[in-house]
Nucleic acid binder design. Structure first.
Lengths: 127, 127
DNA sequence: TTATTTGTATTATATTATATCATACAAACA
DNA sequence: TGTTTGTATGATATAATATAATACAAATAA
């Protein structure tokens, strides 16, 4: 799991870390139950402060993406429960759709992009 | 066009203004060529500083969503050119798909949500 | 037990982003 | 000539972000 952090980005570093780990989980690059690097390891390898990494881990934990047992460090949450998209995700999806529409992107082109994104994700169960 | 601003949100006010106008354009609530309120009017009606509104308008202008002629104020850009989703939009779409997948949301459920969002947008041309 | 490593909490500091406020200006129009 | 438009400027206050230096409880290995 290699993280690419852009220090010049307007996206906060802890958010970049969080996003890339979520991408890793979503695509299957990070398997359920797999161990993440320790806070200090990741801080060392990326040249970022420990507390910044800790903030990303705390966020991932609060969002339910990872589990933490005191000693063994962080692990990808095994067997995430099935469910429906939450309101926050739906809201962001709607904004994306609106941006596409306002840019003159056709409905079908947008949905094609959605399918393209979905197909990059790990297949799970019968889906 | 009524804006709902959440002062307690972590999303900057100028971003909330920008997002809701983009949503308005995308859904068709704001028609191409339609005039937006003046900077000072919108600042007055929302109780927000003029420069904050101006920042939102400048952003919308730089993104190509609105046009501004010096005297008549801001208007929704007429006839946005057709095209394909840009890399920034694709990246955000991919992150959304990853979050859904990592939450155990099936591919089909995610795509169903995508269709739901797309159907809220204005139909244009043959799409 | 002791020692080490884990995530995490604490406090301080520096930098940047955000928002407000008070003005001011050029351009366009009546 | 006025008036209104978007916009620029500078000052200020607050919050978010990142780094830094420690420290602590819990869990593991020695």
């Amino acid at each position: 799991m290699i993280l690419r952090l852009d220090m010049a980005s307007d996206v906060p570093i802890y958010q970049q870390i969080r996003n890339q780990i979520v991408l890793g989980i979503g695509t299957g690059a990070l398997a359920p139950g797999e161990s993440l690097p320790t806070v200090r390891q990741l801080a060392e390898s990326t040249g970022v402060n420990s507390m910044t990494v800790n903030k990303a881990y705390a966020l991932l934990k609060s969002e339910g993406y990872i589990l933490i047992d005191r000693r063994n460090g962080a692990k990808v949450r095994p067997q995430p429960s099935d469910g429906v998209p939450g309101p926050e995700l739906l809201h962001r999806l709607e904004l994306l759709a609106a941006e596409a529409a306002a840019q003159g992107i056709s409905r079908e082109t947008f949905l094609s992009a959605c399918r393209g994104a979905a197909e990059k994700m790990r297949a799970k169960g019968g889906n």
